[in-house]
Design a binder for these strands. Structure first.
Length: 507
RNA sequence: GCGCCUGUAGCUCAGUGGACAGAGCGGCGGCCUUCUAAGCCGCGGGUCGGAGGUUCGAAUCCUCCCAGGCGCACCA
């Protein structure tokens, strides 16, 4: 809505600005799906007709006449109920292509924010699961996109290493070592057996294991926080809260701050902290570190957290808007046509390292981030395992590798004339490249990185079509086509990087 | 019961007010003496869960209903 993409380096946005001046209203340029509707189209006449009290087609005709005068515009036509269809000139497309540099689409938002993205934060009671993998793939991509959009981003991981679950986890390993019965509701599985066979604190081992897996999954976590550390500051925070005592417990009156109910903080009998106490201290810890915004990435099974976290911020006197909770739907595992109920405690869970072993990091990251975060994901492990050849990630990577192949064939200075006429494949490809800044801006604003792989598929599609029809090296417009190929390669690489996927030179 | 999310092609999913609803996979049929055929082209395929409503215009916004997932712990 208030989106203002960086118009200086974005030819489409500049064109929209010029048209906006002519129209006296904000013009949004779309790429029509039907090529007979022009290179770009706008519905501005339809939207502004009521306030002008004029028929939309009349307004559109008026705007068409003036738009046709612009040097960028080859042709302007009114169509349908009042759409304005525009054809741009070849010169404009060639110039726009030439502007595409290494950081094309990188934002410089008028107000860059300091943003923290807290991701995964799984219990160190076992290796990361595919659920954690989605959290990481999604959260890290949001972080990458926000950073590319111009924000200052830090990634943080919070270890719940002081709660009942880790105690239970330790007890489970120790029971296994002694050959005793598992504690009630204890953890089991092969990894528990392995931990039991070696000396040392299993929690410490899991902390190291998780850090290793996260690095392998290409998530550059900047800071690590431990629940034990945060709890040391609970005593400082409690006096700032709106509390009351009942039933042997000190409660936070979060219901007065738009939470569903009040939350227990401290068990009066022994003074032990309940989980929400650490939550509150952690909220303060985050906001006092100077982040304009603290983003939590949580699975749908934690969506009840939204209210209490914002309430915690409000109760401490912070603007609750600084707390943003991103909820992603859960990942289910389908095996043999049946959805598995997964439980880390029971041990019937699919771990991230198993998923990586089966389909690789690139496919895993692509797969986990290429669906909307509001969409549940069913991973059919059998399908994911043998579908690798057909995974769209390879289709996109292949386009990148193909371009690398072309560039290896270039010898010396490239020559050739500037084209005065473009083939449809060239026009389509350039227009696709010019979409990238808007895709990134929207993706950042909506916390929706899944738009990136979708765009990457279309871009690869346009490139493969171009490649099939036209030669680059040795063509009459070699220099121009090399520019086109390089720009395509650069944007594919950037798009893949934004979702943590590699862009290979050869395949 | 209450809250959040979802329901679009055989399957997996895009599409948060605009022009006949798109892609991949699967199915069928074509294209390699030329920069990578992990590619390209073509053909089939949909009452956008259902019913009302708002709007010049609805897959998209509102209401109700149906179906599924997840919550509603002194677990995390």
């Amino acid at each position: 809505m208030t989106r203002s993409p960086d118009t200086t380096g974005n030819a489409v946005a500049r064109l929209a600005d010029r048209l906006s001046e002519l129209a006296g209203a904000a013009v949004v340029l779309e790429r029509p799906s039907d090529p007979s509707h022009g290179d770009y189209a706008t519905n501005v006449a339809l939207r502004t007709a009521p306030q002008h009290k004029q028929p939309p087609r009349e307004l559109a005709a008026d705007l068409a006449a003036r738009a046709a005068e612009l040097e960028e515009i080859e042709r302007a036509e009114v169509a349908g109920p009042g759409f304005l269809n525009l054809w741009v000139t070849t010169e404009w497309l060639v110039r726009a292509l030439a502007e595409i540099g290494a950081d094309y689409g990188a934002g410089a938002p008028e107000q860059a924010q300091k943003i923290q993205v807290e991701l995964i934060s799984a219990n160190p009671a076992g290796p990361l699961t595919v659920g954690s993998a989605r959290n990481g793939a999604y959260g890290d991509s949001v972080a990458r996109v926000l950073a590319y959009a111009g924000h200052e981003v830090e990634r943080e991981y919070y270890f719940n290493d002081a709660g009942r679950q880790v105690d239970l986890f330790r007890a489970s390993v120790e029971a296994r070592r002694r050959g005793d019965e598992l504690p009630e509701g204890g953890y089991q599985g092969e990894y528990i057996d392995e931990l039991a066979r070696v000396e040392g604190d299993p929690v410490a081992r899991m902390l190291e294991e998780i850090r290793r897996e996260i690095a392998e999954f290409r998530i550059p976590v900047d800071t690590w926080r431990h629940q034990g550390e945060i709890e040391k500051h609970v005593a400082e925070v409690l006096p700032k809260l709106d509390t009351f005592e009942a039933e042997g417990t000190i409660w936070a009156r979060t219901s007065a701050y738009e939470d569903d109910k009040d939350r227990p903080l401290v068990r009066s009998s022994d003074g032990s902290y309940l989980y929400f106490a650490a939550d509150v201290a952690y909220v303060r810890d985050k906001l006092e570190r100077g982040f304009d915004r603290a983003i939590y990435v949580l699975g749908a099974d934690h969506h009840g957290y939204v209210g209490r976290l914002k309430a915690a911020a409000a109760m401490l006197g912070y603007d609750p808007e600084r707390i943003e909770v991103l909820i992603y739907q859960l990942v289910h595992i389908v095996e043999g046509g049946e959805t598995k109920k997964i439980s880390k405690r029971r041990g019937d869970v699919v771990f991230l390292h198993e998923l990586i072993a089966k389909i690789g990091i690139d496919a895993a990251r692509w797969y986990l981030v290429s669906r909307g975060h509001d969409q549940p994901i069913d991973i059919d492990v059998d399908l994911a395992a043998d579908r690798t050849q057909k995974n769209p990630v390879y289709y996109v990577q292949y386009a990148h590798a193909r371009i690398a192949g072309i560039l290896r064939n270039v010898e010396g200075d490239s020559a050739g004339e500037t084209p005065t006429d473009l083939a449809s494949e060239e026009r389509d490809l350039i227009k696709r490249l010019l979409e990238f800044p808007l895709v990134v801006a929207e993706s950042a604003e909506r916390r929706a990185p899944h738009a990136i792989p979708i765009y990457a598929i279309r871009l690869a599609d346009d490139f493969h079509r171009f490649y099939h029809e036209h030669r680059v090296v040795g063509s009459e417009t070699e220099a121009f086509r090399l520019t086109l190929a390089r720009a395509t390669q650069s944007i594919i690489a950037r798009a893949l990087d934004l979702i943590g996927v590699e862009a290979p030179e050869r395949m």
